[in-house]
Amino acid sequence: MRRIAAIAAVTWTELVRMKVFYFLIIFALLVIGNSFFLAKFSFEEEFQMLKDIALGAMSIFSALLAILATATLLPKDIEDRTIYTILAKPVSRTEYLLGKLAGVFLLLTLAVLLMGAVFGVVLLLRTQALLHLTELEMQGLPAQELQAALGKIRRAGHDPNLLAGGIVILVKAWLLAAMTMFISTFSTSAIFTTISAFAVYFIGHLQATAREYWLASNESALLTKVALGLLALIFPDLQAFNLVDDIVAGTAIPLPILLKTVALGCGYIAVYSALGAAIFHQREL
């Protein structure tokens, strides 16, 4: 465990030195810039679009970070020959792989937390500004009307379901990192890993459709059925983690469903890590 933690810490430092957190500046600019631009809309539209854009950007950045950061780890260590120094010590290949993955998970967690914090602060500031403005505009009107208007703004600005959205985004990013690491264990270059991971990402979003068609259709040709079956069984169902779109639309996620989704993500991570470790054991370095 200590060895895994040490490798995770080194991986984390390595990734931070690659200046991956610079994307946060772009994210902050995007969210803050949008909050100014969206001020011309009604407050309901403004909050809806701010959530749409911020959570959408969080999903994009975390997915990109998960794939790109993980894809470079093994090839870089092999190229720099640091992997030989590490594996010459009493560190198993599984520990090495898990340490690397833990380092990426740490990075992704911090990235999602920071993006969430930027979004939260912008949302809070806009809510407060609107509350203040409404109070000024509605001066002299009955207290009941003022409270109703303020309540509407508060409800639009403070949505506890957004937290569930952040959790789902993080689990999906972890899953993508584990999947990329799995590909990386048999890939020969970072480019191949990146392209393959993106291909799996897109196929993963269509997997649910393939599965439904495979299970429901009785008329398809045998070859089509086999192809759809393989697609459904081998590729992950990434649509299961696309709950953010509905969260920003105001749909609440019940806790059991959130837990089931997180558990499914953890299952994927465990299997991809185990298979990745098995392949890495066989690999000639």
């Binding site: 649910a208 299970l215 459904a232 069984l233 696309n242 059991p256 469903i257 499914l264 299997v271």
Partner: peptide
Amino acid sequence: FGLVRLPLEKSLDASQREVHLR
């Protein structure tokens, strides 16, 4: 793993749709 998760994913998919998700 695909065979094991298939019923789980199907059931999760159905539960998500039941509460108007996806």
